[in-house]
Design a protein around this nucleic acid. Structure first.
Lengths: 90, 90
DNA sequence: CATATCGCTACGAAATCCGTAGCACAAGGG
DNA sequence: CCCTTGTGCTACGGATTTCGTAGCGATATG
């Protein structure tokens, strides 16, 4: 599962998650990711574009591709687990 | 989703994945994770034990808890996606 | 010209990770 | 008692990655 190594980079899952609903500009995305440093954000976005998970539209900003949306759907069951887990741990 | 920040640590998803089937000793786990350095592996295992995803049995070694197995199940849809994705990207 | 926003880069400091060696402990055999 | 083997794990210096901040070039608006 090479995917696990891709997803296991800092901020990558978070970026995916923040793009779940709408397209976001580079700066808006950065703001949602606790002001992650722009160099890292740009690196992650480049990686995600390289493998066809994210696209950059000159007008709309960054958005998930069809593959990206499918990946997010595959990640959806996590949300339920995370809620139960957060309730237990705090 | 604080979970995303936890999962987005290097080797963490990989460790979870390698523990999917059987209990593994520290060294066996390290061998399966491309010989990740023991300090990092130990740090990740400590984090995972702290939040109740992994346990250490003195005899059997490291294993997933019930929560850990549930998390892995929530992650299961990833596998199908990853296969299709790998076929497309290479 | 001034202002504002965009994506993105530069760069030094800080945090993290890697690679190797080895410690302390326990179990088994001679 | 010693020797070997295996365990989880730590130490430490160097390599890599990330952070934080400042700012560039381009574009649009007033």
């Amino acid at each position: 599962m090479a995917l696990l190594d891709l997803l296991g980079r800092r901020w990558l899952l978070r970026v995916l998650w923040e793009l779940r609903g709408e397209s976001l500009s580079f700066r808006a995305l950065r703001a949602r990711c606790d002001a992650v440093s722009p160099s890292v954000l740009n690196a992650r976005l480049a990686e995600l574009r390289e493998v066809g998970i994210v696209t950059l539209d000159p007008d709309a900003g960054y958005a998930l591709t069809r593959d990206g949306r499918a990946l997010l759907e595959a990640l959806a069951p996590l949300q339920g687990w995370a809620e139960r887990w957060a309730r237990r741990i705090g």
